[in-house]
Design a protein around this nucleic acid. Structure first.
Lengths: 245, 245
DNA sequence: ACGGGCGATATGTCTATACATAAACTCGCT
DNA sequence: AGCGAGTTTATGTATAGACATATCGCCCGT
């Protein structure tokens, strides 16, 4: 009979997960507040009757999740919670509407190809001249306008986009499936609808709109810049944050 | 001479990190697209001349970061990127203003204690009657209004809040330092300023505003609900996403 | 053809051990 | 006291081997 069978909590699946969850619980309930020193690996090891590697695996995962901080020689400490950060999901619009159980609709409003002017280069963040595609289109759910999309694609960085047909499929979906990216930045702000937006979204001029601007890069090179305009009182971005699992 | 000395890339610090970064790079550059099967552990092990535990550690971290998916017997696969999710930092307002190098200012507008009415209970998500504190205050940067805060605190869940003085310090900071929480939810939307908001933020009535609503729980029990209203054209929430490290 | 059972296989967990490394502490010298 | 060198200690990385477990496919019997 091995020592491993003397487990303190035999019920919770695997040992390292048990250890991880025990510690996580103590942190989340406040029993071990920020700054508190967690028992040393050899203490936990003795408590659960397991090897140090097992304890180390549990603690490493908690460290990767930023719940604890580990310092050589000093020990392991509860981190101050990352108070106000959250994972915000900004899904692909088509998938988002599908998830709501509504019928997705798409209309291309305009699509032009041109040599980038100063405003285009500014928006994409490129310095040298390049060709771009500028697209304006509309997404709808059950035939109700859902969002207006205004996109710029750098043709030098994404040459395949010249061959793509955005009359039927939205450029977002096409890009997601064809172009790998390495960095993305989102900015969220609010504006009021001008006449053009109001008409496109079928809302009143002066109504609030939520704007999401996304820039995408591949190894530092700008790929695309997109501006999504949502009716602000009907649409909300929701982010939920909780302890792991 | 041990096999371990035949390492493919001796320069990058530790072995498992080298392996992890090599794989991450291939995924991020698109060399291994979503759905691609990553070499089996024993293949990677042979390639780097190391033990399986080392490979396993690298792959486990990538799996924890959702870059890959591991399936017993089948192998390890590149996941479809979490395309449009991003870590959105919604910092403590005082810290945010401080980080911008501007002077933080705070004014308490009103603070009332009462038994929760139906609207309060609805907003907090509690069913049974309880006492609450309702606070309205304003944050400013260099004496320019920055955001209006409208907060409800459940006194049954946070009894200490009854003793706190919110005349000088904002309730957000106090709560962050005194109350551990386990879950939080943020919702972002846009509204137009009504007369009260316009006056508080020193903007025109009808101007767009960004609204962040945050609900915080501790083990399922609602603690506080807060609504932050920002001038929408001046304030943006920015989230940047990139590969780890 | 169809479905059940079974073996092969890749990942999942765990052990016992070893040496590396960073940082905190001790102690002795000036 | 102040400072630098050496020691101690907790974590960090790595190993070789073992057994567990999910599941994909194959084969076999009906």
């Amino acid at each position: 009979m091995s020592l491993a069978e003397d487990r303190v909590k035999p019920g919770a699946g695997t040992l390292y997960k048990t250890i991880r969850q025990d510690i996580e619980r103590r942190i989340l309930t406040g029993e071990w507040p920020p700054g508190h020193r967690i028992p040393f690996e050899h203490e936990i090891m003795a408590r659960y009757g397991c090897s140090r590697m097992t304890v180390n695996k549990a603690l490493s995962e908690l460290a990767q999740a930023d719940l604890i901080e580990r310092r050589r020689r000093a020990g392991t400490f509860v981190r101050r919670p990352q108070f106000l950060s959250a994972v915000l999901k900004i899904p692909d619009i088509r998938a988002e509407i599908g998830a709501l159980g509504r019928a997705y609709g798409y209309q291309l409003i305009s699509s032009t190809r041109r040599t980038a002017n100063a405003a285009d280069r500014e928006r994409l963040g490129v310095k040298k001249p390049c060709k771009v595609i500028a697209i304006r289109c509309r997404h709808s759910a059950d035939n109700v306008p859902f969002a207006i999309e205004d996109r710029l694609i750098d043709l030098d960085a994404v040459p395949d986009a010249a061959k793509a047909d955005f009359k039927i499929d939205p450029p977002g979906s096409w890009l997601l499936h064809h172009v790998p990216w390495t960095e993305a930045e989102h900015a969220i702000s609010a504006i009021v609808a001008d006449d053009t937006i109001a008409e496109g979204l079928d809302i009143a001029t002066g109504a609030p709109c939520l704007v999401i601007e996304r820039h995408t890069w591949r190894k530092g090179q700008p790929l695309t810049a997109v501006r999504l305009i949502y009716p602000g009182e009907q649409h909300r971005l929701v982010a939920r944050f909780r302890g792991s699992e």
